[in-house]
């Protein structure tokens, strides 16, 4: 345990100052400000629904929680139940098997709620467009407020996407 602790101390904070070319902090700062003014709360809880994706989006979203991106510092967090969520993120084309699940998850998310389609698959079905196994994009199943394109979108794209949504919602 001692070795682990010294390791921790020696490693230091990884969040900053990483050699960033991407303006995470800047986007994040804007995001935080946007959240401030939106709910009166300064926190957004995200419930993610994988409606049939390749898991590419999930990898990128997981990366949001790591030491590098550390989305918690902007007031974003993932929650375990749609009943706790403010934002519903949906990835992948909506397969027939997941159609009901997506609908119930949407139904259970308390208002005000935002639905974001993450990735090309979620926007219009992506490379699976018109396949018999899918219902279509997310917007064919539940109302979508915003879309974040990319296959998969990078974590920064995700953050920017959230920012755009919130700025849009503010207006």
């Amino acid at each position: 345990m001692l070795r682990l602790l010294t390791q921790m101390i020696r490693t230091g904070k990884k969040t900053e100052p990483a050699p960033i070319l991407e303006p995470i902090d800047e986007v994040g700062e804007n995001l935080r400000n946007a959240i401030h003014t939106l709910y009166g709360g300064r926190m957004l809880r995200i419930r993610h629904v994988d409606a049939g994706s390749t898991n590419g989006e999930e990898f990128e979203m997981t990366a949001l929680g790591n030491a590098y991106y550390d989305m918690e510092r902007f007031g974003l967090s993932f929650v375990a139940s749609p009943r706790h969520a403010d934002i519903l993120t949906v990835s992948g084309p909506v397969t027939r098997n997941m159609e009901h699940a997506l609908k119930t998850a949407y139904e259970m998310t308390p208002k005000p709620r935002i639905v974001i389609a993450v990735g090309d698959g979620a926007i219009d079905g992506g490379i699976w467009k018109d396949s018999y196994a899918i219902v279509g994009g997310v917007k064919d199943v539940i109302p979508v407020d915003a879309e974040i394109p990319g296959d998969p979108p990078s974590p920064l794209d995700l953050l920017k996407g959230f920012l755009n949504v919130l700025q849009g919602a503010r207006k």
């Binding site: 490693t11 230091g12 904070k13 969040t15 790591n66 030491a67 918690e72 510092r73 967090s77």
Partner: peptide, 10 residues
């Protein structure tokens, strides 16, 4: 969060 080398939420 600090133990995980993150900054963490306020």
């Amino acid at each position: 969060a600090r133990f995980q080398n993150r900054r963490g939420a306020r």
